[in-house]
Design a protein around this nucleic acid. Structure first.
Length: 254
DNA sequence: CTGGGGAGGGGGCCC
DNA sequence: TGGGCCCCCTCCCCA
């Protein structure tokens, strides 16, 4: 289940990139030493070598043809046509995908010769068009980048691309078939097969496969717990424990 | 109910 | 600019 925290959400008009170009076929993590190994053979610890993950390619620069805008235009003017989703191309009421070059249409020989390529409004001066784009169309364009798989929206294409990986799950465990959004998540998962626990507690003999879990464990050794209930001042090693404590009725005001 | 471990996802930072 | 890594966080499960 995708987590929803720290996600910018809007209900305004949004961008719909061309997901066929954002996505890539599922990439199976297939270290060379897997070949010939009958599954579910537990791989050797060196499965975690970086080379094992080198095949991961989700998006490439060439697959995201974000052409630079003309230097005299405002920084953000929307997607190039190659990233436009023709099924939701309602930006500023335009009816067909447009390239950056199309956004600025010069209407020579007319009183209003500068036309916005996004909403077709015309202006007699370039500065007028520029102001319009900055206040209207660009403001619309920079709103957010929305995910076609869910309602989440992001302020940057990079964040969206990262998020989409949580839907496409390009990193697949060759042992059990479980898929992950990022290579290092798969790396941590593979440790559940190998039993590798590289993160050891300096205070006890426990070891963990995940650094975050070691960090949480270290809190159990601390006399001063990090998270304190505002109502009863009881402290907890994790925020989730504090939340559960509060929800259990200690803080009826909350 | 509480405490803790396991697993996984998010954005941010750095190279 | 993109990938790797880090930190923080959450959910689930179990004792």
């Amino acid at each position: 289940m995708p987590r929803s925290f720290l996600v910018k959400k809007h209900t305004n008009s949004v961008k719909k990139p061309n997901y066929s170009e954002l996505e890539s076929p599922t990439v199976f993590i297939t270290p060379h030493f897997y070949k010939g190994l009958p599954l579910p053979v537990i791989p050797q610890p060196d499965i975690l070598s970086p080379a094992a993950y080198s095949p991961i390619t989700v998006w490439t620069t060439s697959s995201l043809p974000l052409s630079p805008l003309p230097s005299d235009l405002s920084p953000i003017s929307g997607y190039p046509s190659s990233l436009s989703d023709t099924s939701s191309n309602d930006h500023c009421g335009s009816e067909s995908p447009r390239s950056d070059e199309d956004e600025l249409v010069k209407l020579t020989g007319e009183a209003e010769k500068f036309q916005c390529g996004l909403c077709s409004k015309s202006y007699s001066t370039y500065s007028g068009l520029l102001k319009h784009k900055q206040l209207h169309c660009d403001a619309q364009a920079r709103k957010s980048f929305s995910c076609k798989y869910c309602e989440k929206e992001y302020v940057s294409l990079g964040a969206l691309k990262m998020h989409i990986r949580t839907h496409t799950l390009p990193c697949v465990c060759k042992i059990c078939g479980k898929a992950f959004s990022r290579p290092w998540l798969l790396q941590g998962h593979i440790r559940t097969h190998t039993g590798e626990k590289p993160f050891s507690c300096p205070h006890c003999n426990r070891a963990f496969a995940d650094r975050s879990n070691l960090r949480a464990h270290l809190q159990t050794h601390s006399d001063v717990k990090k998270y304190q209930c505002k109502n009863c001042s009881k402290t907890f090693s994790r925020m989730s424990l504090l939340h559960k404590h509060e929800e259990s009725g200690c803080c009826p005001a909350h």
